[in-house]
Design a binder for these strands. Structure first.
Lengths: 308, 308
DNA sequence: AGAAAATCATACCCTGGAGGTATTTCAGTG
DNA sequence: CACTGAAATACCTCCAGGGTATGATTTTCT
């Protein structure tokens, strides 16, 4: 199997396009570097660099390996910091990252329950975007994340807890606020709409936009708010309507009206943690969620039970 | 950075649960193995194994590292075979993997065009599922894949060429076959339906099922055919209806009737290749696709132009 | 074009650490 | 408590990764 060292050397040479500078960056002399690359080429069975003319160019095989090597190295760094962080924490603490909108859902109840169940464990809550959560999980800043974006990262395990219905939010005296029963996306096509958050992509905003596009409707977006609270504020200020998770309804009903959608529109609530993490704290929170979900009549995801 | 060697050793020990057997499997003596693990533990800063009682158990940190290490090792193997395969082919050959249904779409025309454009390149066509294509790309059995399933794999680059409309297929004297204009999914709710393929999951069948579920309809599935041709055959035999890509229409219209769907329902056509592969043959096929798509009036995906 | 500079490869040496053998220490077991 | 199986320790060997000196080639400057 190819050594990490050789990969690191090769990537550095490829990035610098120059053995001398690469050797300097690697804190070794140039000749050993030359030999290392030759060694790697021997292992692969083909030249990785075209040395016939300077500046050095990667061969086709070289480009292929480079693209892969960069990813492997990044992965290895991730794992290393992750594991080291895990090692340096006595771990009677659970740090939870969450996106703002989960606060309107059932998260607070789950947290209360967890504090009751596991009173020996210090609990820390950190607000952060789903994407940040991935990085934070990797380097140990958080242990569990609650988000709404479907992402893929082999180092992180993702459990879809449930799909939350979406509803439309209007200002109180908006014409559409008066109607009874569900409203169709089609009726919202020409309504000025407020989406959030703008960044980072991909975001909940993209989910909403593609929801409309899936029904062949091009939404008329007039505002991109930085976060849910601001979006709701703009709705109340009669700037337009917004599509929000159902749970927001309970949190803010005095100056905003809500109507269900006739189309099936949902946003997932996703729990994530480091794959392979089997700390008792993690099992504990999984247990709390499973118990509470059963109590509330939600389906308990089988993936969640595997964590116990 | 942690050495691959140490990872391999650690994973073997963890899997065997025994230093002696692990050492045997690794073709080294037991003492160097012990030292290697100690070394790794020193680098991490925490014990990975609980040696206080046999059989050995992994510590929490150990479990975490193990889960990650297994993945990194697998990744490295993938890359190695992939790059070696790329090295051992002079590469005036392009092997294309495709799922059956793309044959009904524009793929044949693209292939014809490619043969004309690049007559020095031997072209090989291989039928295989989207999932197989990922593995085949990795170990160099194919260079390009055309499929319909959205997958994620960091070693493979995926370009969504376009979204193809779906249509409903009926037997010629099915009551619904007579109607004019598009038909709604809702009207298909109670129709006996044939889906395909059964395996491997996830498949096109899952796309169709979730299409219905997205509209809060539970499809009534009476058959799971192994592949499209068989499904269409069953439709013709009045076993039920099926949801198929629009392009099938051109291929088989003598004994089957088609109707458009009023809902927006599409299935993507996805081209994939090894990330970092910049072979001229790949650029060539990308160019052919871009040219033909422009000619046909399709949007040319920007991701495709990056390959040129 | 020719000289100078830059850059990579080769030749050769030196040392650390990966692996081997022999032995000791310990945890489970009858 | 003695026995057995298994991991750790002690110590040795030797190769491979790294260093220096220098040669071969390509690039650049005059």
């Amino acid at each position: 199997m190819i050594d990490m060292r050789l990969l690191r050397y090769f990537v550095t040479v490829a990035d610098e396009g120059n053995f001398n500078r690469a050797a300097e960056r690697l804190h070794i002399a140039q000749p050993p570097l030359s030999r290392a690359i030759q060694q790697l080429e021997a292992q692969i069975g083909a030249p990785l660099l075209d040395r016939s003319n300077r500046p050095l160019r990667l061969t086709a095989v070289g480009r292929l390996l480079h693209a892969q090597a960069v990813q492997i190295l990044a992965r290895m760094e991730d794992v290393e910091t992750m594991v080291k962080a895990a090692a340096n924490s006595e771990r009677r603490r659970l740090v939870i990252g969450f996106v703002a909108s989960t606060i309107y859902a059932r998260l607070p109840e789950l947290i209360r329950e967890f504090r009751k169940t596991a009173d020996g464990v210090e609990l820390v809550m950190v607000e952060s975007t789903t994407l940040d959560q991935i990085a934070a999980l990797k380097d140990g800043r958080i242990d569990v994340g609650f988000g709404r974006i479907r992402f893929e990262d082999p180092a992180v395990r993702r459990i879809i807890l449930r799909d939350e219905k979406l509803v439309a939010a209007f200002s109180l005296d908006h014409p559409l606020a008066r109607g009874e029963g569900p409203i169709s996306l089609r009726d919202l096509a020409d309504e000025p709409q407020i989406i959030y958050p703008r960044a980072p992509r991909p975001s909940y905003a993209d989910q909403v936009i593609s929801l409309f596009r899936d029904h062949a409707i091009e939404p008329r977006i007039v505002h991109e708010a930085r976060e849910l609270q601001i979006a709701i504020g703009l709705v109340a200020a009669e700037e337009g309507m917004a599509i929000v998770p159902e749970s927001v309804r309970r949190a803010r009903s005095h100056d905003v009206a809500f109507r269900e959608l006739s189309e099936l529109a949902t946003s997932p609530i996703i729990m994530s943690h480091r794959s392979g993490d089997r700390s008792p704290e993690l099992a504990l929170i999984a247990g709390v969620i499973a118990r509470k979900y059963a109590e509330w009549g939600y389906d308990v995801p089988t993936a969640l039970l595997e964590e116990l």
